[in-house]
Structures are given as structure tokens and as C-alpha cells.
Design a protein around this nucleic acid. Structure first.
Lengths: 159, 159
DNA sequence: ATTATAGTTGAATTTCTTTAACAATTACTA
DNA sequence: TAGTAATTGTTAAAGAAATTCAACTATAAT
């Protein structure tokens, strides 16, 4: 199975960086050390993050770069399909990995702010249906369910 | 059918206001003229709006109240399930009616920013499935598909 | 009706996220 | 290696939303 072997080799070399580099090259932009640091850090984070978290992680590792660079790099990563914006109820933007992840939904508790993820084949079905029906090319998808988690429901009834 | 008649009478008296009043009463808050003006205006708007639009409409009608009051009233309307936040790609929050509307999804074109709405029974199915599976009480739902509309796709291939 | 209590208002201010301007620097190309 | 055009950090600015506070007022209790 030479094909599978190739695939795993590529995966070990962090395909995200390769995708980003290719995107940068195609757009005639530059692969700077700052951008590399940002991208590598993002893909060391477990899926979800926001600008502040990313910035602090980098500072704690002694990497000094400005938030402006982060704000300038994120749109590039979105544009090449590696990450996407996720709206959170706390006033600022959050992001999540897209590459290598199936479309999924978030369930958020409005009381304790906990977020759970789940997948459902119907999400993809709906996406495909819309693509066909409306003639769109869908590049990203956000599905959020807001409500109250079992724990918080119990607490509400207790009081 | 006295029951149906009652229902339609209530509906004519703008059920949104009644729901809001009941919510206000239950919470021990006050039904002030400002709140009434804001709620009535919101339900004269056709579904979607943002704070600025609402504020300008009220000013143009000679109603003088502060944006602070609007910002303070919106969470109440969200909390009692009459409206919900809708994220728009233009940096600030938008809102839409929930009462009397079926759960639906938005498809947004990233090029021309056009937004289309569609419904799909599977959305409700997924919601119900999550309610059962995770034990949540779901109060709101956001489903957004991002991509490129047929028109903009054509333009892209043309150039 | 009067008073007391506590919620509410408007105006201005503050906070916080994100974007923009600009001069200095640096990655890429030929 | 020189030339160019993109990129960087800093600082300032923009913009949305939250907050502060004194004045006001709806509501309930007396």
C-alpha cells in the first residue's frame, strides 16, 4: 500500500503548513517567520482558540510578535480553508480548525457556557442539498444550538 | 369553537407584547414606556434588524430614547425567546424574530454578501435528536452556510 | 393618597476588539 | 546582490457594547 504510506508521511510533515505555503505562493505573498510561528502554534492548539489565547501562548514561549500580525494572518488561514470563525457568546471572535474535521455542530449551555460538539450525517446532507438546490459552492458551515445543559436544568428546578 | 376564537383575538392584540409583559412580570421587572416602544418597533420591522437601524427608525418617528435602553432591552427579548442574535459578516450584531418562525438556516455569499433563508425538516430533526441525546433544553438555533452564490461563481470563472 | 423601595433612564464615559497608517524592515525574484 | 513590493511593530483610531451615576418613576406597602 504505497499510497497510504505517502499519505502518512505527508501528515507527519504537518500538512497544514504545506497547504498554507502553497496558498501563500499562489497569492504571491511571503512566508515570513512570523506567519510560520503563528500557523504552527495554531495547529498545536487543540481545535478552538481566540486571538488572546494565541497571543499569550506565543508570549509565554518567548516568541515576541504583535497582535496585529495575528489579526493579519487569520484571514489568510480562513481564506485557504484551514480554520474558520466560530461565534462565541463572549463578545469576541473565536476560531476552530477546519482541515481534517468533518462538519459538525456546537451545543452551548447559556448558563454555564459549556460547549459540546456533535456530528450528524444530516448536517452534510443539508449542505449538499443546498449546494444542489441553490447552486452555491459552500466553503464553511456553522451550526449552533443554544440552550440549557442537563446539569443547569437540574439546578434551575432545584431553586 | 370558542378556543380558536380566543386564540385569534389574542393574536390580533400582538402576542409578542403579551409574551414580553408576562416575562417582565414573572421576573419582577417593569413594563416601561421605553421598553414598550422598543418592543413594538421591533415587531413592526420585517424580521431582521440591528441596533442602529432600530435606533434610527425610532428617532425618525420622533421617539427619543437612548441606545443604552435598546442595548438593555435586547437581552430581555432574547431571554424570553422573542428574538435571537444573528451573526452577520459586518462586524456587529444583528437580530431576528423567533416567535412564530420555524427553525431555518441562512446561506450567505462571501462575495456579494447576499443572504438567503431556507428551511429543511432535518434541522428540526437534529435539534430534537440533540435534545434527547444530550438532555439539553434547546432555546435557539443558528445554522449558517457560507460560500459563493451562483452569480458570483459565474463572475469568478469569467475573469 | 403617600411614602418607600428598587428598577430604569439618558448621557457620558470606559472598555474591549479589531482595523488602519506609517516608517522601518525583510522576503523573494531576477 | 540589488531592487521591489510585501510585511512588521507601534501607535492611533474606529466601532460596538457595557458601565457608571444622578435623576426619575413604576409599583407595592402603609
Amino acid at each position: 500500500m504505497p499510497k497510504a504510506e505517502d499519505k502518512s508521511k505527508v501528515a507527519e510533515r504537518s500538512p497544514e503548513i504545506e497547504i498554507f505555503k502553497e496558498y501563500i505562493r499562489r497569492k504571491g505573498l511571503r512566508f515570513t517567520p512570523e506567519r510560520e510561528i503563528i500557523v504552527r502554534e495554531i495547529f498545536e492548539i487543540d481545535d478552538h482558540f481566540d486571538v488572546d489565547e494565541l497571543y499569550l501562548r506565543l508570549r509565554n514561549k518567548g516568541k515576541k510578535l504583535s497582535k496585529a500580525s495575528i489579526y493579519r494572518t487569520l484571514p489568510l488561514l480562513i481564506d485557504c480553508g484551514l480554520i474558520q470563525e466560530v461565534y462565541h457568546e463572549d463578545g469576541h471572535m473565536h476560531y476552530e480548525h477546519v482541515y481534517g474535521h468533518e462538519p459538525h455542530a456546537h451545543v452551548r449551555c447559556l448558563e454555564c457556557r459549556k460547549v459540546e460538539e456533535f456530528t450528524d450525517n444530516r448536517i452534510k446532507e443539508i449542505e449538499e442539498h443546498i449546494s444542489r438546490e441553490f447552486g452555491y459552492r459552500i466553503t464553511a458551515l456553522r451550526f449552533e444550538l443554544l440552550g440549557y445543559c442537563p446539569d443547569c436544568l437540574k439546578k434551575q428546578y432545584r431553586s
